[in-house]
């Protein structure tokens, strides 16, 4: 396969078809480190205000990538551009390309609803559906998308709760309302709900910001485990958290991507002065 593609690429380059073939060439060239999500010249707008400016960034498969930066730097907006949730805010829109698995999710024929089924999202505040039981919360996405087979639903619910490290705590009270859980458990329930859709990319928007330290550390542990199967992008205002859980870190400031690299590099020897000042707590 790889050889064939390389051959293809060479051929197309000599023929001058490089424009149409571009995605393929890139993939071949970077075959040693596969990019799950490629963010290309993405701008995020609220009305006429540009909240993120020409961001370019490649996210590697089955890693944890953290977006950090001071409040209002656009890290959440950028995250919300990755599953087209951004445009659900009245007056907001985005442009540029976000390529997930070779498909530009901003492409003309792409239905954002379908995109959101494949890219899971966990929010700042736990938001389980209050009228649903624990079980139904996890099954919500499956049922929404037409899954009727009760055995399969039950299996996936159990598996998702196990993957979200919540199974042991709730296995005897699945019929209780999701709201009866503690805040940290609710957030893990929301993670289970997202995992039940078997997403390949999981977006997490400050998932521990409303939790106590114990709840937070459980989520962090979970993030480290989950990256074996899912590509995770996490927004956090907590630099220690970014250092603890992520493999790669992107530092944003006033809508610009200032620096992006391995978490070690960003925290140990950042290239940009702005990054260094932020990391060392001089502003933010």
């Amino acid at each position: 396969m790889a050889i064939e593609e390389t051959f293809d690429a060479k051929e197309s380059m000599t023929e001058g078809h490089s424009l149409t073939r571009e995605p393929r060439i890139n993939e071949t060239a970077e075959s040693t480190e596969r990019f799950k999500v490629r963010i290309e010249n993405v701008n995020g707008w609220y009305g006429s205000k540009r909240a993120i400016k020409d961001v370019n960034l490649n996210v590697r498969e089955k890693t944890v990538t953290a977006f950090i930066g001071p409040s209002g730097c656009g890290k959440t907006t950028l995250l919300r551009c990755l599953n087209r949730m951004h445009e659900m805010t009245p007056g907001a829109h985005a442009d540029g390309r976000v390529v997930v698995d070779g498909i530009d999710i901003y492409g003309k024929s792409i239905d954002p609803v379908v995109i959101r089924r494949r890219i899971g999202m966990v929010f700042q505040k736990p938001n389980p559906f209050p009228t649903m039981s624990i079980f139904d919360n996890v099954a919500a996405g499956l049922r929404l998308n037409g899954m009727r087979n009760k055995t399969i639903i039950r299996e996936i619910v159990e598996e998702s709760l196990k993957n979200a490290a919540l199974w042991e705590e709730v296995k005897n009270e699945l019929e209780k309302p999701g709201m009866s859980l503690s805040g940290g458990q609710q957030q893990r329930l929301c993670i289970a709900r997202a995992l039940a859709m078997q997403p390949e990319v999981l977006l997490m928007d400050e998932p521990t910001s409303s939790l106590d330290p114990i709840g937070s550390s459980k989520i962090e542990e979970l993030v480290r485990t989950l990256k074996d199967s899912v590509t995770i992008i996490i927004v956090t205002h907590n630099m220690q958290q970014a250092a603890r859980v992520s493999d790669f870190t992107a530092f944003m400031y006033l809508g610009d991507l200032i620096e992006y690299g391995s978490t070690n590099q960003i925290f140990m020897k950042p290239e940009k002065e702005l990054t260094e000042r932020y990391i060392s707590g001089k502003f933010g």
Binding site: M85, R117, M121, F123, M197
Partner: peptide
């Protein structure tokens, strides 16, 4: 947040 929960699961 409730609406976003549904949207994030691929709800129309």
């Amino acid at each position: 947040s409730q609406r976003e929960a549904a949207y994030s699961l691929g709800a129309t």
